[in-house]
Simulated assay, not measured.
Amino acid sequence: MTANHTSAAAPWTGMVPVDDTALAATDTGGSGTPVIYLNGQFATQGYWRHVIADLGADWRHITYDERGRGRKSKTSSDYSFEAAVRDVDAVLAARGVERAVVVGWSYGAVVAAHWVHRNPERTMGAVLVDGAFPYDWMDEAMAQRITTMFRRMSPVMRLLRPTGLTPRLNAAEQAQSNIELGWLSREDALGPVLDAITVPTRFVVASGTSFGSKGDEQERIRTSLTGVTARNANIKVAAKVPSNHGALLKKDYPAITAAIREVADLDRQAR
């Protein structure tokens, strides 16, 4: 059960101008608790459909496609992580939302962690879905591996761009975005951000490998949460689900919706 935090808003779909671009966004409207969803690095807002359907119409769902992603969001001269954080502000401001539950998957989980750390007064709570793990997986060898991978994938990704299934960033831009994420995810960079979060935050963690990972490296990265939860009582692991990184939004969405309900309830109790 949710509390009414805003007056009723009409459903809306359109473009949100920001910097040199515009983002395709959707707001289901209503007067329920607002939830903003932050996508995976090259994913689209459609990935959240199972979570949104499971939470239902009593919640206000806000989704958007990042710069150069999906079929409608415009390209940009800036695909940096800081631009992604600014875009959260732009979408919330455009929809007149002052406080929301922030839910991020993969790359979006790191964006969410930074945003809620910087904006605790605007955050009811956060749900970080198989991302925002402070672990030193990036080094120069990994950066080269990522650059090579995106270069090899480029011909296929160009063919799929008209469908919206792949981003309109070129291979070098995609690689750079992924490499930047790696450096930002190192323990000395992301650890202090997570340690300083002051709002209820829940992790939903996948199992096994993800695209581009090898062996057990993804599971080793996830072990970093043990230190995070030990240091910060606001952060807990809500669930460890059977699905891998790419499938959990489709197959294990009830764990995500349960975590969203939990942090929203905690916010309501605190007020």
Rank of each mutant, 00 (worst) to 15 (best):
T201H: 02
G191R: 02
G212M: 12
T209H: 13
V204L: 04
G208F: 13
P192D: 13
T209Y: 06
G191F: 05
D216F: 00
R220T: 14
E217N: 11
D216T: 13
R220Q: 14
D188S: 12
G191Y: 06
G208H: 11
T198Q: 13
A196W: 06
I221R: 01
R186Q: 15
R220P: 12
K214T: 15
P192L: 10
T198G: 13
R186N: 08
E219L: 00
V193M: 08
A189Y: 01
T223Y: 06
R222H: 08
L190F: 00
V205R: 00
F211N: 10
R186M: 03
S210C: 14
E219D: 15
K214A: 15
G215W: 04
G191P: 02
G212L: 13
V205C: 04
R220D: 11
T198K: 10
E217A: 07
R186T: 15
L190S: 14
T201K: 03
T201A: 07
K214L: 09
T223C: 06
L194K: 04
F203I: 10
S210D: 02
V199N: 03
L194R: 00
T223V: 08
T223I: 12
L194D: 11
R220F: 11
I221A: 12
A206G: 11
L190T: 01
S207I: 15
Q218Y: 15
T209A: 09
T209C: 14
R222E: 06
E187T: 10
E187K: 06
D188F: 06
I197S: 10
E217G: 07
K214H: 09
G212F: 13
